[in-house]
Design a protein around this nucleic acid. Structure first.
Lengths: 150, 150
DNA sequence: CATATTTAGTATGTATACATTCTAATTTCA
DNA sequence: TGAAATTAGAATGTATACATACTAAATATG
């Protein structure tokens, strides 16, 4: 049985993976905002745009599953992408409940222009790790997140 | 020079650490909500409560720095902790701008009662990794997050 | 075929997360 | 000491994130 310095100290909690993951998310978001400042895209908007560009006609529910979004969250993201003129939503002829998604030319252009910056985010995020560690880190992240693939 | 299957595919983006970290955060939050369902505490509320319990008289700005919170975010978290009767805020006699924070007896009791569940969250979160990998994963998370310690 | 169930997307409400702005209070320092 | 700069906390506005409930539409099934 391991012993700990303090059974319920702040030190304990800030050392926990839950806290460190929240911190990593903060760091990732901050770097993303810097690198994609010109594009004025969030990471969530970029990945949505990429999915839509890659699979025209995609519906919102499938999109949400593809990129692990809540069904309620994706609506707002699409609202913002549509408001910026990057994505269009049109009612499916075969099922009037469904909205088919498509990237506009402006959306495709912004996506292409933004990919180098997106790559750069990942480079900066993993810069503190050695190349071997980077592979390992990603592998472990996949393991941790795959576990609760509902 | 490595080659990739598709220069701007969804596959590329979902394999990026930024996306995986967002996913890890989702998994962490979901497990936390399950384990702390009785306490009705979010991870953010628990760590705030722990910091306040450990350092009575703490002010909100210092608290935000301790646990890496935005100054604007901490206000709402404290509102909710106060509304639940877990924390009290009182104007500092020495500086009327400052609100001194203190955990109530109910707050301290809930904190003590919640620590085992908080430990359990971390156990479940890291369950897909071997013991050696767990150490490594935490070490790398610390490296990544320490890099942008403003 | 008419009703029950399911499904897609939206709406509502709560909780982070953060930039920016504002007010009151304190500190600096000319 | 008195105006300028700084600081604490709150307020405002935007963007995830998610539970729950709602509406319209499609499907299943008796």
């Amino acid at each position: 049985m391991r012993t700990y310095p303090d059974p319920m100290s702040l030190t304990r909690l800030t050392a926990m993976p839950g806290h460190l993951i929240r911190r990593a998310q903060q760091v990732s978001t901050a770097i993303f905002a810097e690198e994609l400042a010109d594009a004025e895209l969030t990471s969530v908007q970029l990945i949505s745009l990429a999915a839509i560009a890659e699979r025209p006609g995609l519906d919102a529910t499938t999109l949400a599953e593809l990129i692990d979004f809540d069904k309620a969250t994706i609506g707002g993201v699409l609202d913002r992408l549509e408001r910026k003129g990057l994505v269009r939503r049109s009612v499916s002829p075969s099922d009037k409940r469904v909205k088919e998604l498509a990237a506009t030319p402006a959306g495709r252009a912004l996506l292409a222009a933004s990919m180098p910056a997106a790559e750069q985010v990942q480079v900066r995020l993993l810069a503190p790790l050695s190349p071997a560690e980077r592979e390992d880190f990603l592998r472990m992240l996949r393991l941790v997140t795959a576990a609760s693939q509902d």
